[in-house]
Write a protein that binds this DNA or RNA. Structure first.
Length: 456
RNA sequence: GGCCCCAUAGUCUAGUGGCCUAGGACAUCAGGUUCUCAUCCUGAAGACCCGGAUUCGAAUUCCGGUGGGGUCACCA
């Protein structure tokens, strides 16, 4: 069997969501492991929440994180179009097929009636669900539609049937159809709901494995029903654990940075992020913590995914990002990343070229963002001790340009510290505006005599 | 609340009946290296949700609780 996986983001947020990176990563890895294809389909069926530019940012971020897709809205593919808003006719036709088979029906109920119904059911302590008014009472639907009356198409869910499906991660899941409402499939604006769109497109695009988040488990029976009514073969389902906030609730932007761009802007490396995410719900057979995407693909299997929802905790990501900066990336790589990161910051760029500084800095930064703080003098420095400062100048001036070496500089500092009965950090502050940072004599040697004096 | 999913340290996890006096990593703490801060090295502390059952033996199987999460839209 050809393995084809997909993620189906909605352009309703400002960027790619970390949850999508996570799901995307596992979909990508699974497809690649089996020499299959990984596809992006944009599910832009909610025009109320549609965010302009979102799709473009999502696609860009996906590439930044190395999740290169084989088919998608911007690159096309054999199953185009990959944007649901461009496939409306397909959904309408299939909805009609369902109606003619008696598995779906038109509904003309207004939002007001539905709200009223729901309110009443809640008051009576009943399950809130559609009462099938239109199924039972409407006979002239064709003429009403011809007259331009607003309508939706609803799925006719069996009254009482245990619907089963197998989940690769969780085993068999059984849900009784009485738990299911007569789901709207086609909205009154002609757009499909998620449930209709996803089933039709996954089938038409020959998706073999549906790997998505756990939150979809309870609606999977609806999808199973649709596959059955269309007479299509079911794909393999695998529901991934949901990433959580530290209070264990579903990961949200209120409690965590969730946008891909945030991580890039804060100096996290995509490969570190990928490595970190890979370790959520899965572990390397040799208990390795640091490994590449290729290695992940080699060892990954959906069956090994731990079903419990992990807390998305930046602490470990920060450490891991530091490991990538100081151990995984080559010096040239790191330089390049820093140049890109600081491309608009002239104050920083010349420090990046200085290999000595770079090597001093990389042991004390976990993110690219921290580099600047290490090399650029802090603006809000405390007012230095003037006497010490003058003394420092006098002593340093005795060192010629040719002799400007760390050991010379250090001995000046040492003598000065003894004379003034102070500790190193006090001298530190004069040059950097901070009490701690890069080893000062080495740093001063690296930036040179002239700049060292400029900093005093 | 109904239904569904889940349950090893603060966090990510290993563990599929005896190798577990439960292993690794992050974080924490202590010590060492050191011109600050780090890096690095060494060490410490810290967990099988509870109760039954099965078994010679259970973190591991079963049942019941409890706890957490998800879902119940013309949102995905």
């Amino acid at each position: 069997m050809v393995v084809r996986t997909r993620i189906a983001p909605s352009p309703t947020g400002q960027d790619l969501h970390v949850g999508n990176i996570y799901t995307g990563l596992l979909n990508y890895a699974y497809a690649k492991k089996h020499n299959g294809q990984f596809i992006i389909r944009v599910e832009d069926t909610d025009r109320e929440r549609y965010v302009e530019g979102s799709e473009e940012r999502i696609l860009t971020s996906l590439k930044k994180f190395g999740l290169n897709y084989d088919e998608g809205p911007d690159i096309g593919g054999n199953f185009a179009p990959y944007r649901q808003s461009e496939r409306l006719e397909i959904y309408t036709n299939y909805a009609k097929e369902l109606i003619s088979k008696g598995h779906a029906y038109y509904c003309f109920c207004t939002k007001e009636r539905l709200d009223e119904l729901r309110k009443k059911q809640t008051e009576n302590g009943e399950k809130t669900r559609y009462d099938r008014f239109c199924l039972n009472n409407v006979e002239d639907s064709d003429t009403r539609i011809k007259n331009g009356e607003k309508h939706v198409v609803r799925l006719k869910v069996p009254d009482d049937e245990k619907i089963k499906f197998n989940d690769l991660i969780r085993g068999e899941i059984v849900i009784d159809s009485i738990e299911l409402d007569d789901q709207v499939l086609l909205k009154s604006d002609g757009f499909p709901t998620y449930h209709l769109g996803v089933v039709i497109d996954d089938h038409l695009m020959e998706i073999s494995h549906i790997i998505r988040a756990e939150e979809w488990i309870s609606s999977t029976p609806k999808h199973v029903l649709l596959y059955r009514y269309f007479g299509w073969e079911e794909p393999v389902f695998a529901h991934l654990p949901l990433l959580r906030n530290s209070d264990h609730s579903k990961l949200s932007k209120r409690k965590n940075p969730v946008w891909a761009s945030w991580y890039i802007e804060n100096g996290y490396l995509p490969e570190a992020m990928i490595n970190f995410l890979a370790l959520l719900g899965w572990s390397h057979p040799e208990e390795k913590e640091i490994f590449s995407l290729d290695e992940f693909i080699k060892f990954f299997d959906l069956k090994d995914v731990h079903p419990a929802g992990p807390i998305f905790d930046l602490t470990k990501l920060e450490w891991m990002n530091g490991v990538y900066i100081r151990e995984v990336l080559t010096e040239d790589d790191l330089k390049e990343r820093l140049f890109i990161f600081y491309r608009n910051d002239v104050k920083v760029s010349h420090y990046i070229e200085n290999s000595r500084i770079l090597n001093l800095a990389k042991t004390r930064m976990n993110t690219l963002l921290e580099f600047k703080n290490l090399v650029v003098k802090s603006e809000n420095a405390a007012t230095p001790n003037e006497i010490l400062k003058q003394d420092l100048k006098i002593e340093l001036e005795k060192i010629s340009k040719d002799e400007w070496h760390a050991n010379k500089i250090f001995s000046v500092f040492k003598n000065l510290a003894e004379k003034h009965k102070i500790k190193m950090p006090a001298i530190y502050e004069i040059f950097t505006g901070k009490k701690q940072g890069l080893p000062l004599p080495d740093f001063l040697e690296a930036i040179g005599r002239d700049e060292s004096f400029n900093r005093i």
